[in-house]
C-alpha cells in the first residue's frame, strides 16, 4: 500500500532537474507511505561503463577501501561514490556480474540494490523527505526515474523491503496494492532458480518480470503475462534502461494518474504528486485503463 511517482523526460533540458522534480513528487505522497521510500534514477553512463549500487548497514566499515579491493578483484578500474548507506560503483559494464559476486565475498553484510548501464537505486526506512535528503536525490540528473513511498502491509519495514525492487539489469519495479498469490509464485520462481531477499509481494512481481524477460519476452510481453499470472490488486510502474511502463490489474482499484506534455510523461498515485510539474495545467492528464500496458521509450 503505497504512493508511486514516475517521470520520463522527453526534453533534455529538464534532465539536470530530474532528481529535484522526482523527489518533490515523492514527498507529496508521504501520507500514502510513511514507512520507507526509495528512488531509481536512470542517468547516462560513459560508453561501455556500468553501475552497481550497494547498501550497507555499516557503511563506514564496509565502504572503506572497497573500490580498491573491488578493482583488484575484477581487474578493472572502479570509481566509488558514497551516499549515506549506499555506494555506487562505476566500472566496465562487462565486469558488473563479477563485481556483484566479489562484493558478496568481500562485504557479506552489503546488499546489491541494482546494477546496469544506467540505473542507480537508493532506498531506506523513514519518511520520504528524510530519505530524499540523505541521498541528495534533488541534485541528481537523469533521463527518467521512479519513486515510491511505502505503507507496509504484511512484510517488514526494512531497507530491503522498501521499493523499488530490482531483479535484473537496469530493471526496477514499484507497486501499489497487495498481491494475493505471491507465495505460490515465489515458490515457483525459486524452483526456477531465482533468489529472493525478502518476503515482500512486490519483490515477487519484480522477479517474475525479470524471469520472463530473461526467458526472451520483452517488457511489454512480460507485463501482459503478469496480468494472468499475478493475482490481487496492483498498479505497477517499471523502469528499464530506456523507458518506463505502467500496468494496472483488471479490477483497477488502486489509484493512478498520468500526465503527458511535450517535455515529459509523469505518473502519480494521486494528482497531488503532479500538481507542481511545469505546464501541468496544459498537460494531457488521464488514468491508465485496467489490464492495459503503457510503455514509453527513449
Amino acid at each position: 500500500m503505497c504512493g508511486i511517482v514516475g517521470l520520463f523526460l522527453k526534453d533534455k533540458s529538464l534532465e539536470p532537474q530530474l532528481g529535484a522534480m522526482l523527489s518533490e513528487m515523492m514527498v507529496l505522497l508521504t501520507d500514502r507511505g510513511p514507512d520507507s521510500a526509495g528512488i531509481a534514477i536512470y542517468g547516462s553512463s560513459a560508453e561501455g561503463q556500468g553501475k552497481l549500487t550497494i547498501q550497507s548497514p555499516a557503511p563506514k566499515r564496509d565502504f572503506a577501501g572497497l573500490d580498491a579491493e573491488l578493482s583488484k578483484k575484477i581487474g578493472a578500474p572502479v570509481a566509488m561514490t558514497v551516499k549515506s548507506t549506499h555506494a555506487v560503483f562505476v566500472m566496465p559494464a562487462d565486469k558488473l556480474e563479477a563485481a556483484r559476486e566479489a562484493i558478496a565475498e568481500l562485504r557479506p553484510a552489503a546488499r546489491v540494490m541494482g546494477m546496469g548501464e544506467a540505473i542507480e537505486i537508493y532506498k531506506e526506512v523513514g519518511l520520504p523527505e528524510k530519505v530524499a535528503e540523505r541521498f541528495e536525490v534533488s541534485k541528481m540528473s537523469g533521463t527518467h526515474g521512479i519513486g515510491h513511498t511505502r505503507m507496509a502491509t504484511e512484510s517488514a519495514v526494512t531497507t530491503m523491503g522498501a521499493h523499488p525492487f530490482s531483479t535484473g539489469p537496469d530493471q526496477c519495479l514499484v507497486h501499489n496494492g497487495s498481491l494475493s498469490n505471491h507465495n505460490n509464485v515465489r515458490r515457483e520462481l525459486r524452483r526456477e532458480g531465482m533468489t529472493f531477499e525478502t518476503e515482500n509481494d512486490t519483490e515477487v512481481a519484480a522477479a517474475y518480470l525479470s524471469h520472463k524477460i530473461a526467458g526472451g519476452m520483452d517488457l511489454g510481453q512480460a507485463l501482459e503475462s503478469s496480468l494472468s499470472d499475478l493475482d490481487g490488486f496492483f498498479t505497477f510502474v517499471v523502469g528499464t534502461k530506456n523507458g518506463f511502463g505502467v500496468v494496472r490489474d483488471p479490477i483497477a482499484c488502486k489509484p493512478a494518474v498520468m500526465a503527458e506534455t511535450d517535455r515529459y510523461v509523469a505518473f502519480g498515485s494521486e494528482y497531488r504528486a503532479l500538481a507542481n510539474l511545469p505546464g501541468i495545467e496544459q498537460a494531457r492528464v488521464w488514468e491508465p485503463e485496467p489490464s492495459t500496458v503503457y510503455f514509453w521509450e527513449h
Partner: peptide, 8 residues
C-alpha cells in the same frame, strides 16, 4: 460541477 475530468 466539474469542468475537467473525474477519477473513479
Amino acid at each position: 460541477i466539474v469542468k475537467g475530468d473525474a477519477s473513479q
